[in-house]
Nucleic acid binder design. Sequence first.
DNA 1: CGTCCATTTGAGGTGGATCAACCCTAGTGG
DNA 2: CCACTAGGGTTGATCCACCTCAAATGGACG
Lengths: 233, 233
Amino acid sequence: MLTQTLTTQTINTQIKGSKIAPPLPVSDQFGAIAGHVGIVATEFAYRKDEEIYGEDEPAEYVYQVVSGAVRTYKLLSDGRRQIGTFHLPGDVFGLESSATHRLAAEAIIDTTVKLVKRSSLEKAAATDVQVARKLWAMTAGELRHAEDHMLLLGRKTAMERVATFLLEMDRRLAVAGMMALPMCRRDIGDYLGLTLETVSRALSQLHTQGILGFSGARQIVLRNRARLHNLDA
Amino acid sequence: MLTQTLTTQTINTQIKGSKIAPPLPVSDQFGAIAGHVGIVATEFAYRKDEEIYGEDEPAEYVYQVVSGAVRTYKLLSDGRRQIGTFHLPGDVFGLESSATHRLAAEAIIDTTVKLVKRSSLEKAAATDVQVARKLWAMTAGELRHAEDHMLLLGRKTAMERVATFLLEMDRRLAVAGMMALPMCRRDIGDYLGLTLETVSRALSQLHTQGILGFSGARQIVLRNRARLHNLDA
DNA sequence: CGTCCATTTGAGGTGGATCAACCCTAGTGG
DNA sequence: CCACTAGGGTTGATCCACCTCAAATGGACG
């Protein structure tokens, strides 16, 4: 929605958010585009559970997570929710080829993003083939994730889904062998097409089997990635 | 795989395939690219259940269905299958931004396609921004479908999935209010994340309720789209 | 220290899967 | 032209993985 203004709230946001997801030294996808063309990126902060944009809203900006985490999702009329992707520091989201966002986006925890105007990217892509190629590649990357996720949602068992999720999160946000999940069990369930109880039971079972360790419900250490891979079909 | 040669087999293919999916007067997406750049498209024929390309194979060609129908899918190691998309006459498939196909493709029935080399599209896109924009838009269209399908697979009931499927097929291939499905119940199940029995039961129930009519298991007439929409959540 | 919310755990219900006949129809060959 | 066959589709009976409902536990924060 972007009805907020840039304020000192950003500072508190950063402090609260930093305990979960510290900025990562990722290769900067924004840099690969914006930097290349000299587009200026603005910073912006959202608080936990704040909407960033709604489903079918005009796609005015493209975002990159600086710190925190974002969920994009679709809702059915009765409130059932499917989360499409979790966006973590370094990830670009909100990029559309057409005029509107097809999923809504919310901050999972206090989150800071960089954003650029969609129109400025379009303009850059209209003259620079390298930029156009990069935009296509980013959308293709999202498509790849969606295709993998369709297989998970359509055909994997609950335990296989949770194993896949853990390996994905381990790959994307593990620091020193430990991952700090920014999202709650309900979010995980809505991502995996399960209930929060089923997610919790699967995690408990993996804990009992010694495949993972907890330090608080959202601090997880994988103790046996090989066995987790076996559970992943 | 493209190990076949172009033969008179094409003719028989056409005759057998034509009773299911006649060529449609769609706006030609290939024309929008290939025609624009003067790329020559070759025709090619596949028989029912023949592989067009495999998962993780190099993406050498981009295809457009001329007649027939194609399924793209992923498999788990134990044979569970998730179909991502059904490609019908006019649809482009096999377009990749990266080097390999992420889903396998098979002809559902005898099928004729046009194909162009991926490299020639890449070359065209490297000099023509319009082409680059079109390729991005096509991938974005696939992403949109995948996102809608994730919601279906993760959160819809069996009846809602079948209702969604029928409305999609009605929109895409109904002629004179009737649709001729090229795919079997198992394909539909693997597309919707259900078993073939569950698909069959849902269709029977819709038949009993007078929402649809059959003329053979794969010839379906929707008699009440409004009620079907209500069942679709 | 108490409150609130996230998480875990338990008990029981159910939608869709599985297993099993049976039926229908389009080919096939006599 | 018709009987036979095979594969796809339907239907029935039963099972079970996951959901639902409920309660207890735990951790973070004021």
